[in-house]
Write a protein that binds this DNA or RNA. Structure first.
Lengths: 215, 215
DNA sequence: AAAAAAAGTTGAACTTGTTCAACTCGGGAA
DNA sequence: TTCCCGAGTTGAACAAGTTCAACTTTTTTT
């Protein structure tokens, strides 16, 4: 099995393998995702997709760890990831989860090539499409419409982050918990309560008490 | 006393006045801001700036209110603004402040022309550069590099929002307060404690106690 | 300058969420 | 199969932050 990408991740050495089965179909997920943001021609979609390479990631493997530099931007075809930081107190603070049809990156570290504050870990066996920095820049240069595409996607993401911050201020932990369950039923069903607590910004003990109070 | 909707901007007509003095110099602030993100030629900078029109905004005037549709994107030349939402409990939750050299918009409402959830209010007599939707689209079309510019700016903004969310989870109110003072000394000096509390997501009484505990 | 309206302070009672420790339970590795 | 580890639960004591109300100070309006 060809070993295409390898990452030195802090202590850990991770070898990503190229999937053994053909995943021509998989690009449809990416194409549909793009089309939701901008109506592109078939040629343009193909021109974009050819830069993204498929990889398998095993459960519990890290695509990125704090301190290392993010060398890729990604898109999830299958499976689920957890993007989190470890704070001084040792709490794992989850920024977001990325399941099928989600983008996966540390923009900060990728753009500026500075050490990342984030960890990206597969919660189950997953398939992703990855693009490295050189190819991403080549993609921007070869297809100017990609600038517009990512401009639009970034602005939409911005809106989501603003809304989440407001929810964190205005809602109680209980309200945030049920909002999360309702908004992301497909993702939340794959998660442990501990992981959900890390996303909500509360202790897992308290989440347990929230659940009890609702029975 | 919570702000009630006596400022019905859906109905209210706000007459922005064009500044009486020439502000040729003012565009330098915008040009410098753009250059921080992308190195553009003098012609490109001029090509962008000509779309942005200067306006005066009086203290306490609203550029946008919840429920109305955002018809502009803006940039602050002088003064200071507060961007906030009013929640069900009547709390004013401040998303951010925009002083000189900051961008000012409700991307969500502006992009999709949907009713805004935000209020944008001048905290002091201010000067802004505004662009409407038609001109913004014309700008994107006339200068493709503007797509790249806003793609980069949006991605940087994204990073800031992610970091703020993590700070909200990992830091106590006291830590967040001092972080804010240190990070934005120029802005925080213009604000009342009540406004700062609204940004930190805490009650102004508690902020008062934080300050006392540090003396 | 006086009056009115906000902003800020303080204390007490209260709610929300944390921490620690002890326990149960289920699933994966040897 | 057994062992063990990590997830989840529960309770008690604690810390963080809110609410309300009364008060003082500062700012704005007239």
């Amino acid at each position: 099995m060809p070993l295409v990408f390898d990452f030195k991740l802090g202590f850990q050495y991770i070898a990503l393998t190229r999937p053994t089965i053909l995943i021509t179909m998989s690009y449809d997920v990416l194409k549909q995702n793009i089309k939701k943001n901008l109506n592109l021609s078939t040629e343009e979609l193909e021109g974009i997709c050819k830069y993204y390479k498929p990889f398998d990631v095993k459960k519990k493997e890290f695509l990125l760890t704090q301190g290392s530099i993010c060398k890729f931007e990604g898109f999830v075809l299958e499976g689920c990831f957890r993007i989190f930081t470890l704070d001084k107190k040792g709490n794992e603070n989850t920024l977001y989860f990325a399941a099928k049809d989600w983008w996966l990156m540390d923009i900060d570290s990728f753009m500026n090539q500075t050490p990342s504050n984030l960890n990206i870990q597969a919660l189950e066996d997953s398939k992703v499409l990855l693009i490295n920095r050189r190819d991403k820049n080549a993609l921007y240069d070869s297809l100017p419409v990609v600038e517009k595409l990512f401009r639009i996607m970034s602005q939409k993401a911005l809106v989501s982050w603003q809304r989440r911050l407001i929810r964190n201020h205005c809602f109680t932990a209980k309200e945030r918990y049920f909002h999360f369950l309702e908004t992301y039923p497909d993702i939340s069903s794959k998660l442990t309560d501990k992981q959900i607590a890390g996303y909500l910004g509360i202790s897992h003990e308290f989440l347990s008490k929230i659940k009890k109070s609702e029975k």
